[in-house]
């Protein structure tokens, strides 16, 4: 089974700071991490390779420093890594990103599976997986919690709000993956050392085959940001701190009754 895993580097949201005037992200000093949900996709790929053989390629579109994210993927066990990096890709939205990743799937394929995280930590739109599938014209299964190969095709459990749906699909297929059975493994020391020296293929807009410059970056992204701002903060409320917690509770009940709040 030949598998491509899409990974994204995101700012660590625990450390996020926003400019109070412009509402834009202050990137200085904010560490980047691999989108944690992409690690579930990578883990799924490694498990599938373990069971059915094949290879796992990690592919990332991002700035040069995203190489670090790919080294982490190699350390976990990916066979190869591709960084698609070029200034012209900057400000690509989900559609433009999906265009680029679908071209990578063609160039380095044929793949049986393209796996993505269920969404990114920073965008949370969950759109890239479905859009890659649409561009490739492949089947797709989102929120896959368990994947198995059978004589009839791939059997995939997908976690929906109302329960689990089990579907049978033929490859090639694009799946977005959940954590349930794919808690990411830790990289071994040996893996980390090997990853340091492993080659990473770097593609630019010139070497990515089939690229349409009109469909990437700011110009090629249908969504545009008109403005950003920081939401206003309301007036502080009443803080109750009586001698004991029971007295505080009594005071609150009294205030709520007075205000007819409940």
């Amino acid at each position: 089974m030949k598998i491509m895993v899409c990974v994204k580097q995101v700012p660590d949201t625990e450390m996020i700071k926003v400019d109070p005037v412009t509402g834009s992200l202050i990137r200085d000093g904010v560490p980047s991490i691999i989108n944690p949900f992409d690690l579930n996709a990578l883990e799924a790929a490694l498990q599938l390779r373990g069971e059915y053989g094949g290879s796992v390629a990690a592919v990332c579109m991002g700035p040069p420093q995203a190489e670090e994210a790919l080294r982490d993927c190699l350390a976990m066990g990916a066979d190869s890594a591709v960084l698609i990096s070029d200034r012209v890709f900057k400000d690509s939205d989900t559609l433009a990103t999906s265009h680029v990743l679908s071209l990578a799937a063609r160039q380095f394929g044929p793949f049986d599976l393209v796996l993505c995280g269920k969404h990114s930590l920073d965008g949370e739109t969950g759109q890239v997986g479905p859009q890659i599938a649409e561009f490739l014209g492949w089947n797709q299964v989102t929120y896959a919690s368990c994947m198995r190969q059978t004589a009839d095709g791939l059997v995939i459990d997908r976690e929906m709000e109302g329960g689990v749906e089990r579907v049978l699909t033929q490859t090639p297929v694009v799946c977005t993956v959940t954590k349930t059975h794919y808690e990411p493994r830790k990289a071994t020391m040996k893996g980390k050392l090997a990853a340091k020296k492993a080659p990473i293929e770097i593609l630019s807009s010139q070497t990515l085959q089939g690229l349409d410059l009109g469909r990437i970056g700011l110009v090629g992204s249908p969504t545009s940001v008109t403005r950003s701002f920081v939401p206003p903060v309301g007036e502080p409320g009443v803080i109750i701190k009586e001698a004991t917690d029971a007295l505080s509770a009594a005071k609150l009940a009294e205030l709520l009754a007075q205000a007819e709040a409940i």
Binding site: T13, I16, K17, V18, G23, S24, L25, D122, P222, T223, S224, V225, T226, R227, S228, F229, V230, P231
Partner: peptide
């Protein structure tokens, strides 16, 4: 950014 800012978008 987890609600830290509001972004106005169009497509």
């Amino acid at each position: 950014y987890g609600g830290a800012a509001i972004r106005v978008e169009r497509a």
